[in-house]
Design a binder for these strands. Structure first.
Lengths: 153, 153
DNA sequence: TTATAAATGAAAATGGTTTCCATTATCATA
DNA sequence: TATGATAATGGAAACCATTTTCATTTATAA
């Protein structure tokens, strides 16, 4: 995805960050592996190609990426942060999550998103007016048992 | 609230837990202080009356309370768990949160809850059917800047 | 090519939470 | 009410994801 690459290249420059081998590889890993990776998982993947990149750099780069809006940080209650590339500038990539509390599996869904988005938009408008709150993001997650774990238990 | 007290007393027995001085005091603190307390905040309050109760017991008791459904555990992104009593058996006490990312203030709201609930119910039904997922709970939170922090920055 | 400031890795520190273990307290039963 | 099985406890140590420190390396503008 040379297009994506150009995007973050630009963003990096825009914010005065330098482009380094480690950062390039981290972005590569993030764009090429779908899912919700933890810092350590990212570290291990990066490590395969570039064993010199340390875990500290992973954490620092992830912070930078979150800061410039290329990455989203999640907490699914398993005691470690999880990260997900923000696909595109538009809203197409936006989705919510179903999280299995047993096996920690995470399902992305956008099926119902239109009606949800509308509801969320209304709610956000209402809340920001009532509480003079500037809403920057929302978190909407469903926790429960996935089909496998339901059977298994 | 002798009524609440009877409720958790019963729950405790039901699950085979013993009633101890520490646990009583922790429940007291939780019911008497509104808010979203962290384990340490609870510890400090408990400590005022019962200095013998240790932080370990706080953590253990909070786990128990969450386990038997008297308490809800939250993560608002400030690196410590926060706890909130589940008011009543009915849905009256259910609410969502607005969280200020600057000063960490948390606002409970239920204003828009009817339409939201309806939407959530529909979404949950849809998702549980499509993904064969048994949804146990949802998290819906809005992050942003409260009125004070908006001014201040 | 060079100067300079940013970025890095390794190791140590941090801090919320959990575990360990010897001691104490609860409560069903006698 | 006394007793004993066993649950609960406190304090210290362990845990572990993340952050900080600091001396060294690297990117990049000039």
């Amino acid at each position: 995805m040379p297009c994506n690459k150009r995007r973050w290249h630009g963003k990096f420059r825009e914010y005065g960050y330098r482009i380094t081998v480690g950062r390039k590889e981290i972005l590569d890993v993030l764009t090429n592996s779908k899912g919700h990776l933890s810092a350590e998982e990212i570290y291990l993947k990066v490590h395969e190609k570039h064993p010199s990149v340390g875990l500290t750099t992973i954490y620092r780069t992830l912070d930078v990426l979150v800061g410039i809006g290329l990455l989203q940080k999640f907490d699914f209650g398993d005691d470690r942060a999880r990260y997900e590339i923000i696909d595109s500038v538009n809203e197409k990539g936006h989705h919510h999550h179903l999280i299995c509390t047993e096996c920690k599996k995470i399902i992305d869904y956008k099926d119902f998103i239109d009606e949800e988005s509308e509801m969320l938009k209304k709610t956000e408008k209402f809340l920001s007016e009532k509480y003079k709150f500037e809403i920057k993001k929302h978190v909407m997650e469903f926790y429960g048992l996935c089909s496998d774990c339901k059977k298994r238990l």
